[in-house]
């Protein structure tokens, strides 16, 4: 039986629908035994790592009200395709779908989706995490936060580099 190994990569301003993404991964392929999905949301943490909703005295911290995401059109898609190809070389995958939003977002908004289908759950779990770890450290997206105190560009985290380095 032929298995269509499809990769979908979308960078878009519009929100995405988890059910539609999941259905697309599941469609027309009885060889799939596992689907793993990851959804990244915008939180109200500021760059200092404090959450306004966690804090009893919210005034101590400036909470993030808006996030603006920009990217490098063309290179983003190229980098994401390369990451998916690396994942396909390591694990047996069927479908891979990546959706990353750009533009303005508010807390709890969906930012990123990664979905992977495979014959086996081990491959689906590992590949989904691998793709996310490298998306965070290699795909040319940049976040700018608007807080009650003003605007600032988000700094890259060394912990994200550490997560990606685990796979090397």
């Amino acid at each position: 039986m032929s298995v269509s190994k499809q990769t979908h990569i979308h960078v878009q301003t519009e929100d995405f629908d988890l059910n539609i993404e999941y259905a697309a991964l599941r469609k027309d392929c009885p060889a799939i035994g596992a689907i793993t999905t990851f959804t990244g949301l915008m939180r109200d943490f500021n760059s200092n790592g404090h959450s306004a909703s966690e804090s009893h005295s919210a005034n101590e911290y400036d909470s993030v009200t808006t996030l603006t995401l920009e990217h490098y059109p063309g290179m983003t898609e190229k980098v994401l395709s390369d990451i998916v190809e690396q994942a396909r070389a390591r694990w047996e995958l069927v479908g891979v779908r990546i959706v990353h939003r750009i533009g303005e977002m508010q807390p709890s908004d969906q930012i990123v989706f990664v979905g992977v289908s495979s014959a086996h759950r081990g491959d689906a779990f590992a590949a989904c995490e691998f793709i996310m770890d490298f998306l965070k450290t290699q795909a040319p997206f940049w976040k700018k936060e608007k807080t009650t105190e003003g605007e600032r560009w988000v700094d890259a985290k060394t912990s994200d580099d550490d997560s990606a380095d685990r796979w090397l």
């Binding site: 995401l69 990217h71 930012i111 040319p140 976040k143 560009w153 988000v154």
Partner: peptide, 10 residues
Amino acid sequence: VAFFPPVTGG
């Protein structure tokens, strides 16, 4: 040629 700071997507 593109110049940019460390990436912060996801």
